[in-house]
Write a protein that binds this DNA or RNA. Sequence first.
DNA 1: TTTACTGCAAATATTTTGCAATATC
DNA 2: GATATTGCAAAATATTTGCAGTAAA
Lengths: 155, 155
Amino acid sequence: MKASARTTFTEYLQGKKLRKTPERYAILDKVCDMTEHFHIDTLYSELEAASYHVSLATVYNTMDLLIDCGLVRRHQFNNQPAQYEKVSGVGNHHHLICTQCGRIKDVKDQELLKMMNARRYPAFHTSYFAINVYGVCSRCQRRGKSKSKTTKQKQ
Amino acid sequence: MKASARTTFTEYLQGKKLRKTPERYAILDKVCDMTEHFHIDTLYSELEAASYHVSLATVYNTMDLLIDCGLVRRHQFNNQPAQYEKVSGVGNHHHLICTQCGRIKDVKDQELLKMMNARRYPAFHTSYFAINVYGVCSRCQRRGKSKSKTTKQKQ
DNA sequence: TTTACTGCAAATATTTTGCAATATC
DNA sequence: GATATTGCAAAATATTTGCAGTAAA
């Protein structure tokens, strides 16, 4: 759904009187190619790998715009670097985060989502929500209680 | 409930054959005094203000221990610095996060909590969960759509 | 007495910012 | 032509780490 994302973005940029630069669209396109959660430097590397050079600052700036127009969401689990995720079509999902290895798994839980979507809070205008379930994934359980410090990952 | 927290901590330290240093208990005590969410440097400042000097490194280390033994939880909303919160007695609560001013409000929602507590996920051993609702608080709505960048706060 | 823990300072990692050059409108 | 946006490098922020000295066991 690259086309519809591009349309949304264009409308957003026009609405805010921001410029439609090639860099912004290149970043959006690459974001649409990402299938899972990703970190800024992953996105940056993929752009480089595709011989499309943009500065990191521009990547950060553009991600802010994409978040603002609702095409992307930013997550920060534990104290890992921020992760981004494109907002796919309908519905929301939530995350299972392994506190041992840091792995993230998406879960769709219709009943839970339905309930959350119906929730209203006084004096608060909800735009979206995130449900994060922390625990230990099967892989790490199998490996037993290893001494590895929780969710520490250098890249 | 400082006493019970101290007991829990002592048992944890003994179980892991870690040392019971005065610094660790001083930090735990101060954490128990905190009524809301707090940042590391707030905790550090309060310790200084109470003329109890510990290094920042020790504060970070001790918080990791407190998290590990379940007395404290760490949150990271948007890309603000990490916030900590002592785990109070029973039950969980969730958070309303204002994307304009960064303010956090705790919400107790029994029905939602009951549902979440009943949830089980395949191949995953849940230890706790966090529900974050992002949106705009009444104060910021009243102020209209100001140009202030979302959740940027220097201290 | 052994060695885990502390404090300090330096290192690391991520994100932001300032500014001159460039490109959109 | 005016100025928003870019790239680059430097700055800012938060957290971690190395190491020598100290203190808990």
